[in-house]
């Protein structure tokens, strides 16, 4: 009994020191100058633009990744291709590679002197230092979440329900929409929430490919960093608080999903 209390104490203290205290401190610091100042700091044109840009990037990257993640999971679990192990490693790659390296790699591919750079420039497409680059970088770092959440669920449900559907006359498409997708919906939802959290908070890769042009390619995390390096601590805290609010909303959604998953 006492042992369990000690364990619980250690776990809580660990989480407290690592998470709760710093996040709490940001909130406290944010509101130190008073609510009016906070409001002004988060409603400057640059801050508003950063907020909307972050939402836009997330809104594009997360759905695309959700589709890709489900396809990848289907190939990984149901596929017979010999390339499966390769895909398996590829899906995990973003976990293993530092986002900064991802950013640099993108410069090598899409940059002015990059592999596709010349061709893209001729076609009038700009990727690096513009929004498409930010979207691609964000998609890359969020790639694993949906696939990794959906794969175990697909394994668990097995193939019998799908086979039953086919003997009952359902086409592959009907089977996917009516049987497979509903069966994996909680895993998918969970993966989407995790990707969203990651997309909103992404810094390293985006900081390299975006060019950090205020009012154009500056996301919320980049804004926080800029204000911090410019000794605008109050502004940095206010922008962080905005990020924290998005993160908390995402986490709340996740908790809600978890509850529904357990009762369903």
């Amino acid at each position: 009994m006492a042992g369990r209390l000690v364990m619980r104490g250690i776990a809580l203290a660990y989480l407290g020191v690592l998470l709760a205290v710093p996040v709490g401190m940001v909130m406290v610091k944010t509101f130190e100058p008073g609510p009016v100042a906070v409001w002004q700091a988060v409603t400057t044109p640059a801050a508003l633009h950063a907020f909307w840009l972050t939402l836009l990037v997330t809104a594009v990257a997360v759905p695309l990744n959700a589709v890709f993640g489900v396809l990848a999971a289907l190939v990984l679990v149901r596929g017979r291709s010999r390339l499966r192990p390769v895909l398996d490693v590829m899906v995990d790659l973003p976990f293993a590679v530092s986002p900064v390296v991802v950013g640099l790699a993108m410069i090598l591919v899409y940059g002015r002197d990059g592999w596709l750079g010349g061709w893209l420039a001729d076609a009038g497409i700009r990727i690096i230092f513009s929004v498409p680059g930010i979207v691609i970088a964000t998609m890359f770092v969020c790639l694993p979440f949906v696939a990794r959440e959906v794969v175990p669920v697909l394994r668990e449900i097995g193939t019998e329900q799908e086979q039953a559907a086919s003997t009952l006359g359902a086409s592959g498409w009907q089977t996917f929409w009516r049987v497979t997708l509903p069966a994996i919906r909680w895993g998918l939802a969970y993966g989407v929430v995790l990707s969203t959290a990651r997309a909103v908070g992404e810094f390293g890769a985006v900081s390299i490919v975006s060019g950090k042009i205020s009012g154009q390619t500056e996301t919320l995390t980049l804004l926080v960093e800029k204000r911090y390096t410019n000794f605008d601590m109050a502004g940095a805290y206010a922008a962080s608080a905005l990020l924290a609010v998005i993160a908390l909303a995402t986490l709340g959604l996740m908790a809600l999903l978890q509850r529904r998953k357990d009762t369903a």
């Binding site: 019998e160 329900q161 069966a183």
Partner: peptide
Amino acid sequence: FVFQHYAAFTH
């Protein structure tokens, strides 16, 4: 086709 473990559509 009827499966040993029912293969019911759980949702």
